[in-house]
Design a binder for these strands. Structure first.
Lengths: 246, 246
DNA sequence: GGTGGGTTCTGGTATATACCAGCCGAAGTT
DNA sequence: AACTTCGGCTGGTATATACCAGAACCCACC
């Protein structure tokens, strides 16, 4: 049965058994795993070792950890097609997915050097900035902060921001998103982000940045999302650039 | 100085100081951080607490961990533009980047249900499968396993696979990659993968899958890469689908 | 019918200790 | 010059213990 290696570490063996429980469907999506203390007692290991087993499952994305509440089975991942520049919100609603948007903060700021470059404006340019938390069925998915050029969208913050801003900007200002430049990278969630999403600090996450441009190619919005790593799946379509193929 | 919260955990405080060291440039890319024992002694904490501080930096992607060798400062991330379907190898070479490809395994297999679906062939279809490790300046970047339809590329495995296969298939078989379907998700590296890359198990990683299609839209290659999370950065370009915009 | 306190869950932080296992270089051997 | 061995580095595994802090639930009290 376990002829793989002479000394498969205990925490791995326990992780294997928990993994098997989940694979067998004994534990459905979002259902609670046994507690660290419970596992320690059941398998005759110390609590710290039990924790290592659970952490192994977390790093696989099989399990997630809510700060001081327990560990739960990760649900199926949510797919976001980044090549098709309809916002996640608009896309999700079109597919009939349950999606709640909570407005966390709103403020008026000014572009720093980095934002100025990304949005092709001068540093100091007034911006609307807002942070929103996206949930599905009550579970946090990602946290997003967007910055839009205030001059182009006066009184934007008077609208209800608990909806797709892509659609909002289209309807009320006639600006539609035509292209986007996207960057994806992995990083742990920061303490404040974790607190807002109810997760333990350093929860694995994926950051997605996008610069959104209008039909004339002018950027008007910069967004940065931090997704729960175990939930995110991004798909994209690639097409050979004819110039390179020539 | 530390008026942020009543009890900022010690491991966080130590992580802050190490982070500051790196930010100040005292430690350059790939240079070794102090050992767990060294940190414990220097800051008057236990070794386990020192480790937690280091793990916090790892999850941020600021530091990486080589199994039983030590922890090192992460270098600048490598960018891979997934929208432009030139392979990473071809692209890297074009940009003059140092890139070594090590062939790990080669075998002849048959498509299982999943691969059959992805490659639009019947289950059991013969495939060439090979695994390669990509390095730059001696440092592992990602591990890739590709499966190509054997019937279309006879004797492929007789060629030197330590080069861009996109280019190889183009030159010797007249098949060029035209489009690709890509999926990106986060997951910890598995034990075997970690061993090949010299990393500790559960090292944070990003998996990238791609189905590559020819000019006729027929898939001929399926690849799965596992990148070191702290090194990877994927960029993509989005364009609104005119059908959705209508 | 809510509100305030419990108690009891959960994980989070922290220490001290022990030994294991791979890596590496230096020293000694062939 | 190549090879082996060994000792001292590194992190990895594992235990036992203690107390802290937030979440949840229940119940008694108003």
């Amino acid at each position: 049965m376990q002829s793989i290696s002479p000394h498969r570490p205990r925490f791995q063996q326990v992780a294997d058994r928990l993994r098997a429980l989940i694979a067998a469907g004994e534990l459905g999506e979002h259902s609670a795993l046994p507690s660290e203390r419970g596992i320690a007692e059941k398998y005759g290991i110390s609590r710290m070792t039990a924790r290592r087993a659970l952490e192994a499952l977390e790093s696989e994305g099989l399990v997630y950890n809510e700060d001081r509440r327990g560990r739960f089975v990760s649900p199926r991942r949510l797919n976001y097609d980044v090549s098709n520049m309809v916002s996640f919100a608009a896309d999700a609603q079109a597919r009939g997915m349950d999606l709640e948007i909570e407005l966390i903060t709103v403020k008026e700021t000014a572009a720093d050097a980095e934002l100025a470059e990304k949005l092709s404006v001068d540093a100091g340019e007034p911006l609307h900035e807002y942070t929103r938390l996206f949930r599905s069925n009550g579970y946090a998915i990602f946290l997003e902060t967007e910055c839009v050029i205030a001059r182009r969208f006066p009184d934007l913050l008077d609208h209800d921001l608990r909806q797709s801003t892509t659609r909002l900007l289209e309807r009320h200002y006639g600006t539609s998103a035509r292209t986007g430049d996207i960057v994806i990278r992995m990083r742990g969630v920061r303490a404040e982000e974790a607190a807002l999403m109810g997760l333990a600090i350093s929860h694995p996450g994926i950051e997605l940045e996008q610069v959104i441009r209008d039909g004339a190619g002018s950027p008007f919005c910069f967004g940065r999302q931090i997704w729960r790593g175990e939930l995110a799946e991004f798909s994209a379509r690639a097409i050979v650039n004819p110039e390179n193929a020539g």
